[in-house]
Simulated assay, not measured.
Amino acid sequence: MYIAYFDESGDDGYPNYSSQLFVMSVVYMEESNWKQNYEIIRKFRKFIKDKYGFPIKMEFHCRQLIQDKHPYHGKYNPQERKELLELQFKLIAALDLKIINVVIDKHKITSNNYDVLKNAFTYSLQRIENDMLSEDDNRFIVITDEGRIEKMTAVSRLLQRINYIPSLFEEGSYRNDLKTILEDPLPKKSQESYFIQLSDTLAYIVNLYAQRNLIQNPINWPRRVSDVLNYGDEEELLEILLRKQRLNLKANKNNKFGIVHYPK
Results as ranks from 00 to 15, higher is better:
E239R: 09
Y164E: 12
S9W: 00
S9M: 08
T144E: 11
V142D: 03
D131C: 08
F60M: 15
E80Y: 02
E31V: 12
I240Y: 05
L214K: 09
L85C: 08
V102T: 11
L158R: 10
S19C: 04
T122H: 03
T122E: 07
F44G: 07
D7N: 10
G53H: 07
I3L: 15
F54R: 02
D233G: 05
D105C: 10
D145W: 00
D7Y: 00
H70G: 08
D7S: 08
N112V: 07
F47N: 15
H107P: 04
G232T: 09
H107Y: 15
Y174F: 15
N138Q: 15
Q197L: 07
T144C: 12
K43F: 06
E170P: 01
L249E: 05
L168T: 13
R42T: 15
M152W: 01
L87G: 08
W221H: 04
Q191F: 07
D7F: 00
E80M: 09
N138V: 04
N37A: 06
E80L: 05
R243G: 15
V102E: 03
G13T: 04
L91M: 11
N207V: 03
E236S: 13
I215N: 04
K244F: 10
K151C: 09
T201N: 13
I219N: 00
N252S: 12
V228H: 01
Y204W: 13
Q191N: 14
F89E: 03
N163F: 05
Y164S: 12
H61P: 09
T180N: 11
Y262E: 13
P185L: 04
A4M: 04
L97N: 06
Q216Y: 05
S193K: 04
Y194I: 09
E129P: 01
I41Q: 06
I143K: 07
L133K: 13
N176C: 11
K188C: 12
H261Y: 14
N163Q: 08
I48M: 12
L178T: 01
G172Y: 09
P166I: 10
K108V: 09
I162W: 08
I48Q: 11
Y164M: 14
W221R: 02
L95V: 06
T122M: 06
I56P: 01
V23L: 04
M152E: 13
F121W: 01
K189M: 10
S25E: 02
K108Q: 15
I181C: 02
L117I: 07
N176T: 06
Q79S: 13
L125S: 03
Q79L: 10
N101K: 06
A120E: 04
K244N: 14
Y164W: 12
N138I: 05
L237Y: 02
T144W: 00
P263K: 06
I100C: 07
K43S: 15
V103P: 00
L241D: 02
Q67K: 15
M58D: 15
E234N: 07
G147Y: 10
I181R: 03
N252C: 07
A4F: 01
D200W: 01
N217H: 10
F89K: 03
T122I: 04
F121N: 02
Q67Y: 05
V116N: 08
P185W: 00
F54V: 09
I3V: 13
I56E: 15
E30Y: 09
Q211V: 05
S32F: 11
N119Q: 15
P15W: 01
D96Q: 12
Y2G: 05
Q160P: 06
I100M: 07
A154S: 14
K179A: 12
S111A: 13
E83M: 09
L168R: 12
L21S: 01
N230H: 11
D184A: 07
Y17E: 06
F6A: 05
